[in-house]
Amino acid sequence: MSEILFTIDAKEVKATEGMTVLEAAKSIGVFIPTLCHHEKLEPYGACRICMVEVETGGRTRIVASCLYPVEPNLVVRTRSQTIDKIRRVLIEEMLAHAPDSVQLDELAKEYGADRDRFEKEPSFCIHCGLCVRYCAEIKKKNALGFIDRGARREISFIPKLAAEECWNCKECFELCPTSALQAAYVLAQALSPV
């Protein structure tokens, strides 16, 4: 594995090939906010909170740091006017679904997000997919998954599997950034004919 040198927020970084910008940033203690990222899971790139500016070959792009592979001489900026604006609007969009999320609340304070920018429609889910991916990738149970698409997309348990597996596991509960997964689970159980 060859060593790759580049900078994040003007700090020099040594990374190895195949690492993402997010991993490299973490290795030198530069904080980039994330909501759908988990060290044990495959990168997902859905929440887009981790967007950063990268400059390569004289061209500036805005990329998801959890997916973008490191390359030599890359110049990464984790904060800028544009980045802060992107994060602020994304937080405002997610707050409409999960107004009581502690994680979102903290981010809202950092980026000056208006909690009431968009009409509240609490579904409690921001579709980070941590529960779905953890159950599939780590536990290999596939007890819950996504259904539908677009604005109607949601998570859904397979009732039979949930009844068999979930009560003794519950490992995905603490991953949920809106702390609402348990409610969803209980609901699924209540609706289940089992």
Binding site: V132, A136, N142, A143, L144, G145, F146, I147, D148, R149, S156, I158, L161
Partner: peptide, 12 residues
Amino acid sequence: VPLTRIQHIATF
């Protein structure tokens, strides 16, 4: 294949 994948496809 997991039922979750089938459910996703059938609704997607």
